[in-house]
Amino acid sequence: MLELKTPREVAAMDVTGTFIAELLDDLEHRAEPGVNLLELEDRARQLIAQRGATSCYWDYAPSFGRGPFRNVICLSVNDAVLHGLPHDYVLQDGDLLSMDIAVSIDGWVADCARSIIVGDPRPEDARLIAATEKALTAGIAAALPGNRLGDVSAAIGAVAAEYGYPVNTEFGGHGLGRTMHEDPHVSNTGRAGRGLTLRPGLTLALEPWFAAGTDEIVYDPDGWTIRSADGSRTSHSEHTIAITDGAPLVLTRREQVAASAP
Rank of each mutant, 00 (worst) to 15 (best):
R70D: 05
R51E: 15
L82W: 00
H181R: 11
N147W: 02
A161N: 11
I243A: 10
I48C: 06
L4S: 07
P123G: 07
D220E: 14
S153C: 02
L97T: 00
D26P: 01
R30L: 15
D95G: 06
H87K: 13
E133Y: 00
A155V: 05
A21P: 04
D125I: 01
S98E: 04
R66C: 02
I105M: 14
P68E: 07
P62M: 06
E207G: 13
G94R: 00
L75V: 05
A110W: 02
R191V: 09
G65Y: 01
S63Q: 12
I243P: 09
N36G: 12
V159N: 03
A131M: 10
L202D: 03
T169G: 00
K134W: 00
G34L: 12
D106L: 07
E216S: 14
A229C: 10
S232K: 02
V152S: 03
P145D: 13
L40W: 10
I117L: 12
G175L: 06
A135L: 07
H174Q: 13
E9R: 13
N188E: 01
H239A: 09
H181V: 15
H83W: 06
E238Q: 14
S235N: 02
E3W: 10
V186I: 15
T234V: 10
N71S: 14
E22K: 10
L47T: 06
L128K: 07
S260E: 07
A229I: 09
L85H: 02
L23P: 13
M99W: 02
D79E: 09
G67S: 11
L144K: 15
A53M: 09
T18E: 05
L144G: 03
A247R: 13
L97A: 03
L38D: 11
I73G: 03
S55E: 12
F64L: 08
G213D: 14
V35N: 11
M99F: 01
R253P: 00
E216Q: 15
T252N: 04
W58K: 02
P123H: 03
E22A: 13
L128Q: 08
C112T: 08
D151R: 13
V167R: 01
A80Q: 07
K134A: 11
I129F: 01
L97V: 00
R178K: 09
T16G: 10
D59S: 10
A130K: 11
V15F: 03
H29R: 15
I243M: 09
T234R: 03
R30D: 11
W108P: 00
R199H: 11
T252Q: 02
Y60Q: 06
S104K: 05
D42L: 15
G193F: 06
L47G: 11
T225A: 10
L4M: 10
P221E: 14
L144P: 01
A131G: 15
E182G: 04
G213Q: 12
E170R: 08
R253F: 05
A130R: 10
G246N: 08
Q92E: 10
L27H: 10
V118N: 08
G175F: 08
G157C: 08
N36H: 14
R122L: 13
